[in-house]
Amino acid sequence: MTNFNIKEHLQACRSKEETFKALVTLSKNLPRLSEEEKTDENKVKGCESAVWLIEATMDGKRHFKADSDAKLMRGVLVALLSLVEGKTIAEIQAMDLKAELTELNLSSYLTSSRTNGVLSIIKKLTSC
């Protein structure tokens, strides 16, 4: 799915149920990590569902791999990574990822409650 399609797919959602179903669909586009990659070091703290995030920088551009044991979180990761994949750290840091996710109808995943670790993921995406 292209970035444009992801955006369109999520922005078309008119209810919590539609967003839920859209995330389930998106989740299928996330390549799963191997068990060896799911290390404690790669784990993002502060998520109630387990989330692993691996970053590699090549020629100054950041590339990400991620996984979660929860399907909706995998859908959110697809959306989130589509925003930052292949960008430089400076470009990522200049982005307002919270606002971008809100535009994608995902603002309910941005609460600071312990059930959602998206803010912790954003923190990790934007840290050097």
Binding site: S15, K16, F20, S49, A70, K71, L72, M73, T115
Partner: peptide, 14 residues
């Protein structure tokens, strides 16, 4: 094979 948070989110949407 289904995370309880996913079930919770669908129940919430309803």
């Amino acid at each position: 094979n289904i995370h309880t948070m996913d079930l919770n989110a669908y129940l919430d949407s309803q």
